[in-house]
Amino acid sequence: GIDPFTGEAIAKFNFNGDTQVEMSFRKGERITLLRQVDENWYEGRIPGTSRQGIFPITYVDVIKRPL
């Protein structure tokens, strides 16, 4: 089901994660935001896939912030 505490964002740019914990994505992908890790990073996942990880806040347009 849908978790009411998650947020939502759209990727503004392609992001290629450097490490296992970073999640790569392509511009235009819809991302579920799980939490804000710190002032620069979100943790999120791509709905319908097993992809999950952290990524820079500046790479996405936030539609709804996670609670």
Rank of each mutant, 00 (worst) to 15 (best):
T58S: 13
Q52C: 13
T32R: 07
T49M: 03
I10C: 07
E29I: 02
L67Q: 15
I63D: 04
P66V: 07
P66H: 09
R65H: 15
E8C: 15
P4H: 14
R30F: 12
I57W: 04
L67W: 04
S24D: 08
F13I: 11
A9R: 02
I63Q: 06
N40I: 14
G7H: 14
E43N: 04
D3I: 11
N14I: 04
Q52W: 10
I54H: 06
Q52P: 01
I63L: 10
N16H: 12
I2Y: 13
E29P: 00
E29S: 03
G7N: 08
W41L: 07
S50T: 13
F55A: 00
V37S: 03
G17N: 04
T49I: 02
E43T: 04
P47I: 09
E29R: 02
T19R: 12
N14V: 05
E29H: 02
F15G: 00
F15Y: 12
I57L: 09
E8W: 13
Y42W: 14
M23P: 01
R30T: 11
T32Q: 11
G53V: 01
I54R: 08
K27N: 05
Q52G: 06
V37P: 03
G7W: 15
E39Y: 09
S50P: 10
E29V: 03
T58C: 15
F13L: 12
I31P: 00
R45P: 01
I63T: 07
A9S: 04
K27E: 14
L34R: 03
G53Y: 01
M23R: 01
S24A: 08
K64Q: 05
R45M: 11
R51K: 07
M23W: 03
F5G: 12
D61H: 15
N14F: 05
V62T: 08
R45I: 10
G53T: 01
I46Q: 01
R30Q: 08
L67K: 15
P47R: 09
V21F: 14
K27A: 14
R35M: 07
V62E: 04
R30A: 08
K12A: 07
F25N: 01
L34P: 00
V62G: 03
K12D: 02
V37I: 13
E29G: 01
T6K: 09
K27Y: 07
S50K: 11
I2R: 10
Y42I: 06
Q36P: 07
S24H: 05
Y59Q: 06
Y59T: 08
Q20M: 11
E43D: 06
R65K: 15
Y42M: 12
F5L: 13
V37Y: 08
P4S: 14
P56A: 02
V21I: 13
P4K: 13
E43H: 09
L67P: 15
T49P: 02
M23L: 14
N40S: 11
Q20T: 10
L33M: 06
R51H: 04
G44I: 01
R26V: 15
G1I: 13
I2Q: 14
N14A: 09
V60I: 13
G44L: 01
F25Q: 01
N16C: 15
F15N: 02
S24I: 03
E8R: 07
F5E: 11
D61T: 12
E22F: 10
T58A: 14
S24R: 05
N16S: 11
Q52T: 09
L34Y: 06
N16V: 15
N40F: 14
V21K: 13
I31E: 00
P4A: 13
I10E: 05
W41Y: 10
A11H: 00
F5C: 15
D38E: 07
G1F: 09
V62F: 06
L33Q: 03
E43G: 03
D3Y: 10
G17M: 04
P47W: 08
S24C: 07
R51N: 03
N16K: 11
P56V: 02
I31M: 04
D38L: 06
G48H: 09
R35Y: 09
T58Y: 12
Q52E: 08
E43S: 07
V21C: 15
G48C: 10
N40E: 13
E22D: 06
Q36C: 11
V37W: 08
K12Q: 06
V60R: 00
D18E: 14
N16I: 13
V62K: 04
I63M: 07
F5P: 08
L67A: 15
D61L: 14
G44V: 01
R45V: 10
S50C: 14
W41F: 08
G17V: 03
V62H: 04
N14Y: 05
F5Q: 15
I10V: 12
N40W: 13
D3G: 09
R30M: 11
G28W: 04
I54Q: 06
T49L: 03
P47F: 10
P56F: 02
F55N: 00
L33D: 05
G1M: 11
I10F: 06
N14P: 08
P47H: 10
N16T: 12
E39R: 09
S24Y: 04
I2P: 14
R26D: 10
I54E: 04
V21N: 13
L67R: 15
I46D: 00
I57C: 11
P47V: 10
G44C: 01
G17E: 03
R30Y: 13
V60C: 06
G44H: 00
G17Q: 05
V62I: 08
R51G: 02
R65Y: 15
T6D: 10
K12G: 03
P4Y: 14
F13K: 11
A11K: 00
T19A: 11
Q52K: 12
R26K: 13
Y59E: 04
S50L: 11
G1V: 12
A11N: 00
P47Y: 09
P56C: 03
G17C: 06
G7S: 08
G44W: 02
I46C: 02
A9V: 05
G28H: 05
I63C: 08
E39M: 10
D18I: 15
T49Q: 05
M23Y: 01
E22N: 06
R65M: 15
K12V: 09
T32P: 00
R26L: 14
G28L: 03
R51I: 06
K27V: 13
G28I: 01
S50N: 13
G28F: 05
E29M: 04
E39N: 12
I2T: 14
T58V: 12
K12N: 08
T49H: 03
E22V: 04
V21D: 14
F13W: 12
I2F: 14
D18K: 11
T32H: 08
E39F: 10
G17W: 02
I2K: 13
Y42P: 01
E29L: 02
L67I: 15
R35V: 07
Q52H: 13
P56I: 03
K64I: 05
F13H: 12
Q52I: 09
T58R: 10
G17T: 06
L34T: 08
I57A: 14
T49E: 06
I2C: 15
D3W: 12
L67E: 15
G1T: 11
I63Y: 07
P56D: 04
A11C: 04
Q36S: 07
Y42Q: 02
E8P: 04
N14M: 06
G44N: 00
P56L: 07
W41M: 08
Q20R: 11
Q20D: 14
G17L: 03
P66I: 12
G44F: 01
G7A: 06
F25M: 04
F5N: 13
E29N: 02
G7E: 08
E22P: 02
D38I: 05
I57R: 08
M23F: 08
N40V: 13
E8F: 13
Y59N: 05
N40P: 03
G48T: 05
N40A: 10
E22Q: 11
T19D: 13
K12Y: 03
E43F: 13
K64L: 06
V37G: 02
M23E: 01
F15H: 05
E22G: 06
R35E: 05
R26A: 13
Y42A: 07
N40R: 10
E22Y: 10
E43Y: 14
F55R: 00
T6H: 12
G48V: 02
I10P: 01
G28R: 03
G53Q: 01
T32V: 11
L34E: 04
L67M: 13
E22L: 07
E39T: 09
W41C: 10
I63S: 06
G1Y: 09
T19F: 07
N16G: 07
S50F: 10
L34G: 04
T58L: 10
I10N: 03
R35L: 07
M23I: 07
I2N: 14
G53I: 02
R30K: 12
R65C: 15
I54V: 11
Y59C: 14
E8I: 13
E8G: 04
I10T: 06
D61Y: 15
K64M: 04
W41R: 07
E39A: 11
D61E: 14
G48A: 06
R51T: 03
I54S: 03
D38R: 07
G44M: 01
Q52Y: 10
I46E: 01
N14S: 09
R30C: 10
G28C: 09
D61M: 12
F15M: 02
A11S: 04
L33K: 02
I31R: 00
T32L: 10
K27Q: 12
A11I: 02
R35H: 09
F55T: 00
G7K: 08
E22M: 10
R30D: 03
P66T: 06
I10A: 03
Q36D: 04
I10H: 04
I57G: 11
N16Q: 12
D61C: 15
S24K: 05
P47S: 09
P66W: 03
R30H: 11
D61P: 00
L67H: 15
W41V: 04
L34Q: 06
F15Q: 00
G44R: 00
